[in-house]
Design a protein around this nucleic acid. Structure first.
Lengths: 246, 246
DNA sequence: GTTGGAACTTAACATATGTTAGTGGCCGGA
DNA sequence: TCCGGCCACTAACATATGTTAAGTTCCAAC
């Protein structure tokens, strides 16, 4: 059976574990998705503090997890298609962050009672779902390291390298870059700096021939420089796909 | 049965879920611990990249999770007694960070095959273990927010407030502070700054009457100021215990 | 095409933080 | 007892980043 038979979870399968699952299990995973929604304008899908009874899987586009604090937004995670965005909501129930769409997105919703049933009856899938939340935490740790260690240009380089790699896992990376609908303000929110300073950094990386970010498109000019500047080692992503940046 | 019957997991039970478990389940949890070790000097217990077949629970003292990068150490998480330090190692197997002891610590080891058995047969405990790793991720997210949003004094204030709260959950917080064996260098490593600058910040917080950190002892001088400065809202800890700082 | 707003860009200045260098105190080992 | 090393602390200077205030480009709605 081809992956096209699983329109909602296709990217998830590409990213992690296509070969580890039987077709029956893939079908069960696909069956988690209850309904699908598309948002074309920026939209806050879930709010911090919400009590949730379903989790969301990103099918297409980009979403961010955001913590608002006195008027400023701080991006604590970015997601690519195939990611379970708030699977942790299944156990924690109350969200500690907002979930917002960036650009045009398509999202699937998985009711918690369906997840519950899978957990009880499908040990392989249960393990995989847990695994998926642990990978999330590993990325968080790398972001912490990035924020503690790197200055603004390094942070941007790291962000670009990570997104490129993660998009590559789900077959969405181009040969020399990828499409990224983030504004400079949003890049700044993800790197813990201001849009003015992010503008300086974007300009600098462009002029030094590292990476060009403009009009929603990332073009990597020198992947070695990019990796060095971002102190990027993809090991924490635990990926099984081809490691384009390695 | 009193909690003293569970010497290894007593703090874990105090922190989260004492009432949610039957005595039988508490016994099973306690039985996860295979052997116990004590380290009196600073010691690297596990290394990044290690393939692990057991997970560690902190019984007494402080441990840090550390990512080394060109000679510098970056603390990505700190743990208090009762924490499962690397439960994620059960699923991920390969560690993406070191685990190091700070001061004198006592640590229990839980072989993965025992955890596996619990997961297969004890849904309540399985859920609780998953929950525990998700809480870990929630703290990571808060650290990301803290690093993105706060300057060095705010970061230190946040760190102190968080540790005080978490120690309170496990009955280890004092009325006006707590014992903390971190050096200024280590505080700097956890706040993404240098020891020199951390020294400035420690001095400033002491002089402005927020908190006094000296000789391994944290004395909170003004908890309202501390919370404000650190933008600290304990909601993300999802705690059930008394919220001393609220 | 015009208009309005959002995104991008730049400049000048203030501040936080990093860097390098060095001091003195404390404590444990020889 | 002395010694050596780690830790706390300070100073002077360099740099990265934040802040405020503009101007410009781009694009979409009308």
């Amino acid at each position: 059976m081809t992956d096209e038979a699983f329109p909602y979870t296709r990217r998830f399968l590409q990213g992690r574990s296509r070969d580890a699952l039987s077709d029956r299990e893939k079908g069960l995973l696909e069956g988690l998705v209850d309904k699908v929604e598309r948002f074309t304008a920026p939209h806050t899908i879930l709010n911090r503090g919400d009590v949730v009874d379903q989790s969301t899987i990103l099918i297409e586009g980009t979403v961010a997890r955001v913590i608002h604090e006195d008027g400023k937004r701080h991006i604590v995670a970015l997601h690519v298609p195939g990611d379970f965005v708030d699977l942790h909501g299944f156990a924690l129930k109350r969200l500690d962050h907002d979930v917002v769409s960036i650009g045009s997105v398509q999202i699937g919703f998985a009711p918690h009672d369906r997840i519950q049933k899978i957990l009880e009856t499908e040990p392989t899938l249960a393990r995989m779902l847990w695994y998926s939340t642990l990978l999330d935490a590993a990325m968080h740790r790398e972001w912490i390291m990035k924020l503690e260690r790197l200055s603004a240009d390094g942070r941007l380089a790291h962000l670009v390298a990570e997104l490129w790699q993660r998009l590559d896992f789900v077959d969405l990376a181009g040969e020399n870059g990828f499409s990224l609908p983030l504004t400079q303000q949003e890049l700044a929110d993800a790197c813990g700096t201001t849009s003015i300073h992010m503008n300086r950094v974007v300009k600098k990386l462009r002029e030094t021939g590292v990476v060009d970010i403009s009009r929603g498109q990332v073009t990597v000019l020198d992947k070695t420089l990019l990796k060095e500047l971002g102190a990027f080692d993809p090991a924490y992503l635990y990926g099984r796909g081809p490691l384009k940046l390695t």
